[in-house]
Design a protein around this nucleic acid. Structure first.
Lengths: 243, 243
DNA sequence: AAGTCACGAATGTATAGACAACTATAGACA
DNA sequence: TGTCTATAGTTGTCTATACATTCGTGACTT
């Protein structure tokens, strides 16, 4: 029981969150050996298969390294994220060993979306849209402004999430069966609102990632991630097989 | 028993192979509904958890799409590349039907690189570096500033290229056997020099793509592509399933 | 005709238990 | 001293089972 968050996520997601937290807060430093699966089973009160799945998925994503017969170890932080799996800034910050804080600025259901939103969702008639605006801070410094518009018929209970947990963002990405994702990356000067929220000056350069997802023919989410240009870079590293 | 390969792989890997084979040989065409987990359990003689793991991993990789309560479906092959192969602005401009013009600003061999360049190339002793600076215009309007530093021992005759032809850029990207590529995308304000060359104001937002390539252990090229933020966006589109 | 509800079917998660495979280490033996 | 071996500890795989969640359908009701 101790250590696992209280939200409605699946258990293996909570375990992943628990591990990332321990990495982030320095409890388990780089190359540290994690408690064995058996230990985690005892201390967390879940079955071994659940722990195993959590550790395997974190290994697949590069956070851990496992050696059969020996143990599980914390991997050195990756230089950057890959482009496919961007947008989970929370895991990134935690894995880097920084302190993460999410500040929820807006959390609402828009009953009557304006013209632009309707177009973005390809609605023909006015229907509600869920809306969140969150500032993500790394060690107290704002890094990313995350604005999401969500189709509530496709993503139920979106507004009820715990937006301070890393697992939430992981979960959101896999909970809806996406059929299409579009990314658009641009550089734009900060608006007055963005500048205020990110603690930068107006017109300062921001890296903006627009992400639009579909489930079948209908638009599921329309997201805008605004990074502070002077504090963040998106990276991808490609290694050919031979090395 | 029937259908699973005979090698020493784990069962769930064999199930994955089995599914991929059926997709590959056209047995299960695009958007076809797969047999249910229960059916596969019967026909393959493995437990449901094993089938489930196989299907889940194939889903994560984009080969399948699953809908709870409905079934599992074959996804169309991935239509699109990721961001790896951007940066050939010339083809892009031409494909858009616009007029392209390349303006060579600098073309030189630097015999004695400064400290920063040496670090970028991980040189331990001073060695020459080829250098080009080119402005790309779409219909007469500057869009991209392309600055390349090239290791002349790996890329021969770099300075002799025809930098106004689209094919040149295609060629440069594939002429050297790269073993590693690193992309870093950031948003930074235009410097005085960049502003002048791109016909924008100083401090205007630019999208900067840094690209560094290795051939074996040695650095081959260090490139910086600076896009005018208000005139350009990088895009990637990922298609997965039924549409 | 339209809405509601119950049910079946399919996937999602979780558990307990078993065995296999691998590694490091300590102890036995030459 | 050096080598081999047994063993404990850890991760990897697999099964059987149970319950949860979601979706579509068809029967029933209104």
């Amino acid at each position: 029981m101790p250590g696992l968050s209280n939200t409605a996520l699946p258990l293996y997601e909570k375990v992943k969150d628990f591990v990332l937290d321990n990495i982030g807060n320095g409890n388990w430093p780089q190359n540290e050996k994690l408690p064995s699966e058996h230990d985690l089973v005892s201390s967390l009160g879940v079955s071994r298969m659940t722990v195993h799945r959590a550790l395997r998925e974190l290994t697949d994503k590069g956070y851990l390294r496992r050696v059969q017969g020996v143990g599980t170890f914390v991997s050195p932080p990756r230089a950057q994220s890959t482009l496919i799996e961007i947008s989970n800034i929370v895991s990134e910050i935690k894995a880097r060993g920084s302190r993460h804080r999410a500040e929820v600025v807006i959390l609402e259901r828009i009953e009557r979306p304006d013209e632009m939103l309707l177009r973005a969702f390809e609605y023909t008639e006015p229907r509600p849209v869920d809306h969140s605006l969150i500032v993500h801070c790394e060690n107290g410094v704002p890094v990313q402004l995350e604005e999401r518009y969500v189709n509530p018929t496709l993503v139920k209970h979106y507004l009820d999430q715990d937006f301070t947990s890393a697992a939430t963002y992981d979960y959101l990405q896999h909970s809806t069966p996406l059929t299409e994702v579009e990314h658009l990356i641009s550089a734009i000067p900060a608006t007055e609102r963005d500048a205020k929220l990110l603690h930068i000056r107006e017109r300062d350069s921001c890296l903006v990632l627009n992400r639009k997802t579909w489930t079948g023919p209908t638009v599921a989410t329309v997201n805008t991630f605004t990074y502070v240009g002077s504090r963040y870079a998106l990276g991808s590293r490609y290694l050919s097989p031979a090395r």
